[in-house]
Write a protein that binds this DNA or RNA. Structure first.
Lengths: 107, 107
DNA sequence: TTCGTTAATCGTCGATAGACGATAATAGTG
DNA sequence: CACTATTATCGTCTATCGACGATTAACGAA
């Protein structure tokens, strides 16, 4: 159970910064690819934003795909499942499962 | 939206440590009050555990009630709702609501 | 190939987190 | 009141985070 907790803690740490939440919201609101627009949107230095993107990528929350000279970032919400499950366990001690059991392959 | 992100980041930070996750699991598995049993369970120094408990309490994730010479800690899962909502927004861009609709007003 | 654009990396700095032992503070008991 | 048990706080240390400027790497276009 310890490595699971470590994994969940890593995910939570990835979300534990307003700038990273902002980036995720930005990616959610922008279905297409955006590259350095993130830098302008969060109002931080380019290197700082790159570091935040690296952290999010390392946690698996986003994916980066090279698209010409820039990089297309996209959300990977499935990576957050362990964290979501943990929160769900805490918030719903009685009604454990509420959703469809496998939403992995939807398309 | 910024203060919301800060609040969510604070919640995520509270979960961003294996020892704190362990404490939360312990509280979930122990409906009754436990005090210093947490210290023995997590295997850290008493002062360190007290600090983790303080962080969790500051985030509102747990509550502490004085019960004689010891303190009864209890989960307060409702405090995690902003974080859970955020994750839900990311993970379910299309199917927004999947659960019981009466928990909060779904917006 | 050379240039311009974009992203990642490096080095550095200050601030914060995390751990510990030691020391208070609190509450019940004799 | 004195004593014990439990918890919180303090002081200190190391490690990590977060931000920045500067530099480097990768790629398309001229």
């Amino acid at each position: 159970m310890q490595d699971t907790d470590i994994e969940i803690a890593e995910l939570a740490k990835a979300l534990a910064h307003p700038a990273r939440l902002r980036i995720l919201r930005l990616l959610l609101a922008t279905p297409g690819c955006i590259g350095g627009d993130i830098v302008g949107a969060v109002g931080l230095a380019q290197s700082t934003v790159s570091e935040h993107l690296r952290i999010l990528k390392a946690a698996g929350v986003i994916t980066g795909e090279i698209s010409g000279p820039r990089i297309c970032y996209a959300l990977n919400p499935a990576a957050l499942e362990p964290l979501a499950d943990f929160i769900g366990t805490l918030t719903a001690p009685s009604a454990a499962v509420c959703c469809v059991p496998d939403e992995k392959e939807i398309s």
